[in-house]
């Protein structure tokens, strides 16, 4: 049967919405009533049917619309996709990973036929049927990383591993929570994380790096991260901050439910076989408050998390201007009742 892809937008008239099934599968990121940074890394193994973890690379009803939005961003600003010269091999690794995973998880939408290094890739939702030579850049319309990430949901960073560190040497970044690939490309793990408050002092990045540099082929890992966005806008880049920043001043008690979105990133880490690099897919899920509070447990919990969020985190995540309005609105849905442990709705 396959997925029914929604026709929707992430800009201008913002018609993005989740279907009821997608609300239920939303990767709610809080397993308790408070939030603080931690080394929240776990093995990236397949989860329950009907969850976003049913496949290790998730494709959902927003796929086609997200790919259209990505094309618009790239047309305006090609610097969102960059690869330093030594990263082409890693790009091929990523192309193989994403084609294999998408074809495996969604055979009705994607097909990969491999015949030695002659590959045929069929992407039905986007109407693509290309035959190319694996490893030969001249047989694809874009470099391998750009080609496949124009057809895969989420942002992607490719890290080169050297001298016990990871270096962000390539990426496709059009749906980011306010950071710039063009600025960060070439930095190491500590440098690109420099703006994050509190986590350095807590030793989170030192421990996380040690784990990541030892990630094994065939054993991916994952973590969740979150922030909030006003309007379902995928491209909240610093490049365009002067264009979307004013949205933050538009939140009122009347429109909170419709305008304010929880933005969750399912981040995974994969060792790449030929280049020995690591790819970091950042898969972004959006849900508006009205949709989220249809699950009473999530409503209660989100209220408590946002209310008690340390000031540094709230500032870093850009919530300051509308946090009081949001907390006030959520408080009406919190009856002080208990919340069950774990992420899922009751």
């Amino acid at each position: 049967m396959g997925i029914t892809f929604r026709k929707e937008t992430f800009r201008d008239d913002f018609t993005f919405k989740n279907s009821p099934e997608h609300i239920r599968r939303f990767p709610f990121p809080f397993n308790e009533d408070a939030y603080m940074y931690a080394v929240n890394i776990e093995p990236h193994v397949v989860g329950p049917k009907g969850s976003v973890l049913e496949n290790l690379i998730d494709v959902d009803e927003h796929y086609v619309a997200e790919m259209q939005d990505r094309a618009l961003v790239l047309a305006e600003d090609p610097l969102r996709c960059q690869s330093l010269p030594h990263m082409t091999l890693a790009g091929w690794d990523l192309l193989e990973l994403l084609m294999e995973q998408q074809a495996l998880g969604y055979p009705e939408h994607f097909t990969l036929e491999r015949n030695g290094d002659r590959w045929r890739w069929i992407n039905r939702p986007l109407g693509i049927d290309d035959t190319f030579t694996f490893g030969d850049v001249s047989t694809l319309p874009y470099g391998p990383m750009e080609y496949i990430t124009r057809q895969s949901q989420g942002d992607f960073c490719i890290l080169d591993q050297r001298d016990g560190n990871l270096w962000m040497d390539a990426g496709m970044v059009t749906t980011q929570a306010d950071w710039s690939l063009d600025f960060d490309i070439g930095m190491n793990f500590f440098e690109w994380h420099a703006p994050v408050p509190l986590a350095h002092e807590k030793g989170i990045f030192t421990r996380a790096l040690k784990f990541l540099t030892n990630i094994q082929q065939g054993k991916p890992a994952r973590r969740l991260n979150w922030t909030m966005t006003v309007n379902p806008r995928l491209d909240t880049s610093p490049e365009n901050y002067h264009k979307w920043g004013p949205d933050r001043a538009t939140v009122t008690p009347e429109n909170v439910g419709d305008k304010v979105h929880l933005r969750v990133e399912l981040q995974s880490f994969w060792r790449l076989p030929r280049s020995n690099g690591i790819v970091f897919p950042i898969r972004c899920y959006l849900i508006k408050m009205d949709e989220l509070v249809t699950q009473p447990k999530w409503a209660r919990r989100l209220h408590r998390v946002i209310r008690d969020l340390p000031e540094e985190l709230a500032t870093y995540k850009g919530l300051t201007r509308y946090r009081p309005t949001l907390v006030e609105w959520l408080s009406k849905l919190d009856d002080d009742g208990p919340t069950s442990p774990g992420f899922g709705p009751d």
Binding site: L84, H86, M87, D160, Q216, Q217
Partner: peptide
């Protein structure tokens, strides 16, 4: 075991 690389080329 699966292959592990602790002696990889610096592709730069």
């Amino acid at each position: 075991s699966y292959p592990v690389n602790l002696f990889s080329l610096d592709l730069r």
